[in-house]
């Protein structure tokens, strides 16, 4: 809908409005906007219009049934978390990629560069000193992206809640999709959180 309303004003250019006011009865043969200009406008309009038509076709017919489920399937089956160890939970995070739990079974492969990640697992206590770096990392990740707050510290400050240097909950900084309780959560809990996130992605509508 937004795209439609954005495309419309192009037809009635501001140049046309004063002419209509100056002569309330314009001659029928004389268009308010010169013909050639209309043609240019139309030509300029073609691409967005075609794109929109295609998009709406896709959105109505295929997107709901084919494309969105397909991309959601891909997105939920290949979550690349950021390789970032904050505190205690990072050790359990690493253990989840160890031989016993092997999170790669679910297609979860940690990457070191935020540019290649789509999942930010906040695995530990976030202090105010690192807060803006966390936000930068989050912003460096390309859309679509998700955040898991792993452990009590990331969820709400944990045992360091009253400390002067600790962010009481990472949701003060970035939007969080899944909270995992535990101090630290066991690797099973992390896997469960990831599977819950997959469920969220599966039900995604946009």
């Amino acid at each position: 809908m937004g795209r439609l309303s954005a495309a419309k004003p192009v037809l009635t250019t501001p140049a046309a409005a004063p002419t209509a006011e100056d002569s309330p009865l314009p001659m029928a043969t004389e268009p308010a906007v010169p013909f050639i200009e209309i043609e240019t406008l139309r030509a300029r309009e073609f691409l967005p219009a075609a794109k929109e038509a295609l998009g709406s076709l896709l959105s109505e017919q295929a997107q709901g049934k084919l494309i969105r489920p397909m991309f959601n399937w891909a997105g939920r089956n290949s979550l690349f978390p950021l390789h970032w160890g904050l505190a205690c939970c990072a050790i359990e995070f690493a253990a989840a990629f160890g031989a016993r739990w092997d999170a790669e079974r679910f297609g979860v492969v940690p990457r070191s560069s935020p540019r290649q990640c789509d999942l930010l697992i906040v695995n530990g206590t976030v202090t105010w000193k690192v807060a803006h770096k966390l936000i930068t990392l989050y912003e460096q990740m390309p859309e679509p992206k998700w955040v898991i707050a792993m452990g009590n510290c990331a969820t709400g400050g944990g045992p360091f809640r009253t400390a002067y240097s600790v962010v009481p909950g990472v949701d003060k900084l970035v939007p969080v999709d899944v909270y995992i309780a535990g101090c630290p959560p066991r690797p099973e809990a992390l896997l469960d959180g990831i599977l819950r996130l997959e469920q969220l992605i599966k039900e995604r509508k946009e």
Binding site: K129, Y164, S165
Partner: peptide, 20 residues
Amino acid sequence: LTPTGYEFHPLLRSFQLHEP
């Protein structure tokens, strides 16, 4: 340890902890 520009000396007795 504290962030740049932090003005307090947290381990002084006058520095009180509080609920967030």
